[in-house]
Design a protein around this nucleic acid. Structure first.
Lengths: 144, 144
DNA sequence: TTAATTGCAAATGGTTTGCATCCCC
DNA sequence: GGGGATGCAAACCATTTGCAATTAA
């Protein structure tokens, strides 16, 4: 992602704080909350306030660059809105978040909304799971 | 629901505050947050503190009587765990919450979890929707 | 220049907790 | 009587905001 270009497109000033925050976001593969992001950001520039992290996150969400999720712990987490839509599998024992996508579920949701007289604005599907006894987190495609 | 019996089963004392709070919960058809519940509870007994409402709610959740949901506004909402499982359709324009259930989606979720080497502990599916243009919230079974 | 952005600290809003008192069992 | 339950107020924690100082364009 070209940070300079993105800022220009969205009419945002490319400041030092934003450069750092957006770089951390770009390097992020997991689903950190604002406090964890601030922790990572201050490792690069200790002068950046958490208020700036929140303001940047909210700004990017409003501009459609990020998506905000609130899981059951009540804290907000952010992830890039650019990637293809997906849902989350959350391991309740470790807190790990695994992304997945099911076109069939997507289709069924559309159908349900329509049947009730609505159109979908967005949705969230979170499946809270624990490893199968006798299994060790077998991955997609592996055979039992 | 027999409140006295429920308390005895769960080893809880049947106090005045609990009687009122559980009665309000039993009479509730919508999905109020703790503050709204406290509002309703204090209409019956103005002396009940919001701390007691929170303590009772958390207690009933631990005992498996209630389920806790945190929607995108960050506030916790509670509903009886006894009723059949269902998911939520949330009208973004009015905040209305509509319950629905899709056995097919349930089945697909099981399959996805299993394929990743997990078993499901619980899940949440929330579809944020808006009324279809030209429709007025047509209900299940009605024809266009 | 000058309006947007930031840091700081104080304010918010939902939720939890310490403690003295109260009251079911 | 005694330990669980309650009310109150203070504490918590994530998030937001007012404001003066800073800075990108």
């Amino acid at each position: 992602m070209d940070i300079a270009k993105l800022c220009k497109e969205k009419g945002l000033r490319l400041t030092g704080a934003r450069r750092v925050i957006m770089q951390v976001l770009a390097d992020t593969k997991d689903h950190p909350d604002a406090i964890e992001l601030h922790r990572r950001v201050t490792m690069i520039d200790p002068g950046i306030a958490i208020a700036t992290v929140y303001r940047t996150l909210n700004l990017l969400q409003e501009k459609g660059v990020l998506e905000k999720h609130v899981f059951n712990d009540g804290r907000a987490r952010f992830e890039s809105a650019e990637q293809a839509h997906h849902d989350h599998l959350i391991d309740v024992e470790t807190g790990d978040v695994i992304e997945f996508r099911s076109d069939e579920i997507e289709r069924l949701q559309e159908e349900i909304a329509r049947r009730h007289g609505f159109e979908i604005v967005s949705h969230r599907l979170e499946i809270y799971v624990r490893p199968l006894r006798g299994s060790r987190g077998r991955k997609e495609g592996e055979t039992p």
